[in-house]
């Protein structure tokens, strides 16, 4: 048995990004989309989520612990790279760089977002349509949300592409190429869902 855990940590990092963190992202974005149907529908959906049995257990094991590991180890990975897109301006090298840039943006965005919503809720605020509407009534916050959402969907979609390689699912260049198309389609679709929802809170 090996004493070095790097292989394990890297694989775990890749896995956790998809399950459960990525899966949670999809659930989250789907619930957000209720905002498009109006405040009533949104409040009902978010209360349903809030009232799930074992809520704290689920939050800690499916969201916070995996997210913190992914974020901390991800930062370590991101700052190991020495970017060279000026010499090698290939598409995949740019994606490699963007994956690391968006990772850092997402970390900052999620910290802010959790502070404003989940921590606020723990301190007694009620999470509902009005809360979000109030946050994004500030155009600056709205822009930050749009940037944060786009960075998140990109990081997730492109992360799926490298997940498929890290686990040896896509080996041939052709399968990797098709995975690029598929994951970019996922990026566009999820960005649409995310941005349409956030705009629903604006006036």
């Amino acid at each position: 048995m090996s004493t070095n855990r790097e292989f394990f940590y890297r694989k775990l990092h890749s896995l956790l990004g998809v399950i459960p963190v990525g899966a949670f992202l999809i659930v989250h974005l789907t619930v957000n989309y209720f905002a498009v149907r109006g405040p009533e529908a949104y409040n009902q959906a978010s209360h349903f989520m809030e009232n799930l049995p074992f809520r704290y257990f689920l939050e800690i094991t499916l969201i916070f612990l995996p997210l913190i590991f992914h974020a901390v180890y991800g930062l370590y990975i991101a700052f190991q790279a020495k970017h060279n897109t000026s010499t090698y301006s290939y598409f995949r090298n740019w994606m490699f760089r963007l994956q690391r840039i968006t990772g850092v943006i997402v970390l900052i965005f999620v910290a802010w977002h959790v502070w404003e919503t989940r921590i606020a809720a723990a301190l007694g605020a009620e999470v509902n349509f009005d809360m979000m509407a109030e946050i994004v009534s500030n155009p600056f916050a709205l822009i930050l949300y749009i940037i944060g959402i786009t960075a998140t969907t990109f990081h997730f979609a492109n992360g799926l592409w490298s997940f498929a390689i890290t686990w040896g699912i896509t080996v041939s260049p052709r399968s990797q190429q098709i995975a690029t198309y598929a994951t970019m389609a996922i990026f566009v679709a999820l960005t649409f869902v995310g941005i349409r929802s956030i705009l629903a809170f604006v006036g």
Partner: peptide, 15 residues
Amino acid sequence: MDGEGGLSNCGNSQN
């Protein structure tokens, strides 16, 4: 898989 800097350090930049 064992030592430091093995296969899993690849970040798929594909340069």
